[in-house]
């Protein structure tokens, strides 16, 4: 096995393993910490694809900002098994069915891809920050600006909600 294959399998097992740990952890704080490990594994995959900008932004935004807020909220809520309301069986059943449907969709997408592709490092320059910026501000400028308006409206919405006492 080449170094790239080893790295690929290591990162993949790390991501899947910590995803499972995140789901089965009893303590919500532990779940969050496992989720952070997943983000690191995914960033590692981005680096393998030579998308350094995406890798570091994934860490800054998800691991650095959003997960800190998650941690904040969970620490302040002081979740306990005793005080947690028990969800009824119908809700649980709905959850299982919708989760299973999502799994089906993902599986069909995976099955349709070409199997047995060798693990290889992407050597293209598309992921580097300069090329990414050029592409975003020329070819994809309309979707880019639209999504920035979406973000702005989300921010304004958050301010409006917090103003309403």
């Amino acid at each position: 096995m080449s170094i790239i294959s080893i790295l690929f399998y290591f990162l993949s097992f790390l991501a899947v393993g910590s995803a499972i740990m995140m789901l089965i952890s009893k303590n919500p704080i532990h779940s969050i910490l496992w989720l952070i490990v997943i983000f690191f594994a995914i960033s590692g995959h981005y680096v393998l694809m030579n998308a350094q900008f995406l890798a570091i932004v994934n860490i800054i935004v998800y691991a650095g900002a959003i997960m800190v807020l998650f941690l904040f909220v969970v620490m302040l809520m002081n979740l306990n098994a005793e005080t947690e309301p028990v969800k009824n069986h119908r809700l649980q059943l709905i959850g299982v069915v919708s989760g299973g449907l999502l799994l089906l969709v993902l599986l069909s997408a995976v099955m349709k891809t070409k199997a047995n592709l060798p693990v290889q490092m992407v050597v293209g320059e598309e992921g580097l920050i300069q090329n990414l910026g050029k592409t975003l501000f020329t070819y994809y400028v309309v979707p880019f600006e639209l999504s920035s308006i979406l973000f702005l409206s989300a921010m304004v919405g958050a301010v409006v909600i917090s103003k309403k006492d």
Partner: peptide, 17 residues
């Protein structure tokens, strides 16, 4: 690396953990 400064911001944002 060509993202040098972003790397520093990334590590900085992890420092809070």
């Amino acid at each position: 690396v060509n993202i040098g400064m972003l790397y520093i911001f990334g590590v900085l944002s992890l420092g809070v953990y």
